[in-house]
C-alpha cells in the first residue's frame, strides 16, 4: 500500500505555502475505493462463479442458473437451511428476551453489589475465542450426557447470542432519559404501566437491534455448531463446510451466494428502516 505514505507527507519547509487543505491527503480516495474493492471482490467473485455452467468452479464455460436450481432442490441443503432458521429464530427469541430483562435490571435496578461482575459474566461469550467456546461446550454436553439433538445447538447459540443482544439494548437504555419514566409515574402510571407505555416502546429500537444482531450472529456461526451438532443437526454453514471439504463445485458457490445475499438483504433492510425513522420525525 504505497498510498500509506501520503498520510504522512514530508514536512513543509519553513516559509513554503500550504496549498492543500489540512486533512485532504491525495491518494486517500483511491485507497478508500481500493479498500472497498478488496472488501467486495471476493463476494463478487463467489457470486459470479456460481453462475458458471461447467462443473469446475474456476474454468468459465458459460452462464447458467442450473446450480441454483440444483442447490434449492437438494434435500440435504434444504434440511440444513431449515435447521439454521430454527436454531437462529429460537436462539434469537430466547437470548433477546433474557438480554432485555437483564439490561433493564442492570440499567434501572439501581446500584448493587456484584453489578460489575454480572456485567462481566454476561459479556463473557464475547471475550472467549469461538473455538474455545466450541470445545468447552462439546466437553460439557458430553460430560453431562445431554443429547437433545437440535436442542443442544439452540442452547449453545442462545448462550453466545446473549451478549450480542444485550449490548444494543443496554446502550439504548443508558441513552434514554430517565425523566420520561419519572414523568409517567408523576402522571399516575404504576410501575407496570410505565414499563408498558413508556419504557418498552422507547426501548424497542434497541430490542430490535439486539434481536437482529443475535439472528445474524447465530446464522453466521460455524465453529461452535461444527463441534456441538450431531449428524442430523447440521446447519447451513456446517453443510457448506463439508461441501467445501469434498471439493469446490459451483453448487457450493450457489448455496453460499444465497446465504450471503440473505444476510446482506437483512443488514441493509435493517439499516434503512432504523435510519429513516428519526429523520421523519424531525420536520
Amino acid at each position: 500500500m504505497t498510498a500509506q505514505d501520503d498520510i504522512v507527507p514530508a514536512a513543509a519547509l519553513p516559509g513554503t505555502k500550504v496549498r492543500r487543505a489540512f486533512g485532504e491527503v491525495p491518494g486517500l480516495k483511491t485507497l478508500a475505493f481500493c479498500f472497498l474493492a478488496f472488501l467486495y471482490l471476493p463476494i463478487g467473485v463467489l457470486v459470479a462463479y456460481s453462475f458458471n455452467e461447467g462443473n469446475i468452479v474456476m474454468v468459465w464455460t458459460g452462464f447458467s442458473t442450473d446450480w441454483y436450481a440444483q442447490a434449492l432442490a437438494d434435500a440435504d441443503i434444504r434440511k440444513a437451511a431449515m435447521n439454521s432458521l430454527i436454531v437462529a429464530v429460537s436462539a434469537t427469541a430466547i437470548s433477546t428476551t433474557c438480554a432485555t430483562l437483564a439490561a433493564l435490571a442492570l440499567a434501572r435496578g439501581g446500584a448493587f453489589r456484584g453489578k460489575v461482575a454480572l456485567l462481566g459474566l454476561i459479556s463473557l461469550p464475547l471475550m472467549v475465542p469461538e473455538i474455545v467456546t466450541a470445545v468447552a461446550t462439546l466437553v460439557f454436553f458430553s460430560s453431562i450426557g445431554l443429547r437433545l439433538g437440535l436442542g443442544n445447538v439452540i442452547i449453545a447459540h442462545t448462550t453466545f447470542c446473549i451478549p450480542f443482544a444485550f449490548m444494543p439494548i443496554r446502550a439504548r437504555l443508558e441513552g434514554m432519559d430517565t425523566t420520561l419514566e419519572q414523568a409517567s409515574r408523576d402522571l399516575y402510571a404504576s410501575d407496570w404501566e410505565t414499563f408498558r407505555l413508556v419504557t418498552l416502546p422507547l426501548l424497542m429500537p434497541g430490542v430490535l437491534a439486539g434481536a437482529m444482531l443475535a439472528f445474524v450472529i447465530s446464522m453466521d456461526d460455524f465453529i461452535i455448531t461444527l463441534m456441538v451438532a450431531g449428524a442430523g443437526d447440521t446447519t447451513l454453514p456446517v453443510y457448506i463446510y463439508s461441501m467445501i471439504r469434498q471439493g469446490i463445485t459451483p453448487e457450493v458457490n450457489a448455496v453460499s451466494s444465497i446465504l450471503l445475499l440473505f444476510s446482506i438483504a437483512m443488514v441493509t433492510a435493517y439499516w434503512f428502516t432504523t435510519r429513516q425513522k428519526p429523520g421523519r420525525n424531525i420536520h
Binding site: 471476493p42 463476494i43 463467489l46 446464522m219 453466521d220 454453514p237 467445501i244 446465504l259 450471503l260 441493509t268
Partner: peptide
C-alpha cells in the same frame, strides 16, 4: 455489510 455476512463463505471465496 460484509462483516455481517457469513465468515466461512467469505473466507471460502479466497480459495477461488
Amino acid at each position: 455489510i460484509p462483516f455481517w455476512t457469513n465468515q466461512l463463505v467469505r473466507t471460502f471465496a479466497w480459495i477461488i
